[in-house]
Design a protein around this nucleic acid. Structure first.
Lengths: 151, 151
DNA sequence: ACTGAAATTTTTAGAAG
DNA sequence: CTTCTAAAAATTTCAGT
């Protein structure tokens, strides 16, 4: 990846619908060359897809939280992520080095739904949980800063 | 928002470059009607934008972590998010109800960069930190499940 | 790996029902 | 909301450098 690819990536992170014409202009390439670059970034897996960004509040998910997850029984096989994957309100699941085994990030419609979700998590994965409710999202989902280097 | 809008939203969450023709087909609407729907979802702020998704590892950010942030001095004015906003490696900043005041989610290139970042955070915001390193991202950034209801 | 051009698809806007 | 139209813009493909 060179600086030209980086320019394209930054543009597509800012606007996933940026046109090839725009990308061509930004890079000084022809439209065809810009297209090849984009296709290559997609094929090589640097770009994994395109997505509309939605306002979580506006779509009825005003409450978010972090949930630390700890297995109740250390002898259990650790298939916790698989056991939780079907719960759509879990946006992210991270195995972590710390007191807990996993940290989940969840979005729900209401405190009641959060309570339900926590119960489902405990039952589905046979774990204890420790929940930290988000009071305010100061900023979120900021795009990564793209740096050329050994990438 | 009705079920038709929900179908459109789900499609655009799965593919931000879905064409109006595709959306029309998925909803049973004409292209014109689909276009109006999308425009309305954008104008009403349900759709806040479009973005390429990138593989964080592939773009050189293989290490991520949660950082709990606690003010050193309770008398300080709380402008912590503003003081941290310029640090691009901070992807999200959440005010939380818990032991800490904020939880940050960060992505960095290396352990060394994480160390640097933590130092910068402490200095910039006059806070103490407690960092939980992510060992594995089981899944992340899953799109919210769109439900019709009082939305 | 790029340019340039042609062919196709998509978007956008509008008229009329 | 529909269909239809028409122009503009974007994507895609390909021959040639």
């Amino acid at each position: 990846m060179d600086e030209t690819d980086a320019v394209i990536l930054r543009r597509l992170l800012a606007d996933g619908r940026a046109t090839l014409g725009t990308l061509a202009e930004a890079t000084g390439l022809s439209v065809s060359a810009a297209q090849s670059r984009v296709r290559r970034l997609e094929e090589r897996g640097l770009i994994t897809g395109y997505r509309a960004q939605v306002d979580a509040e506006a779509v009825g998910l005003p409450l978010s939280a972090f949930i630390e997850v700890t297995p109740l029984d250390a002898d259990d096989p650790d298939d916790i992520p698989q056991r939780l994957g079907h719960l759509a309100e879990i946006e992210g699941c991270f195995s972590v080095a710390g007191d807990a085994s996993y940290i989940l990030f969840v979005r729900v419609a209401s405190p009641k739904r959060l309570e339900d979700l926590i119960r489902q998590i405990r039952q589905a994965a046979h774990v204890s949980t420790r929940t930290t409710v988000v009071l305010q999202t100061c900023f979120a989902d900021r795009p990564p800063a793209i740096n050329v280097k050994t990438v």
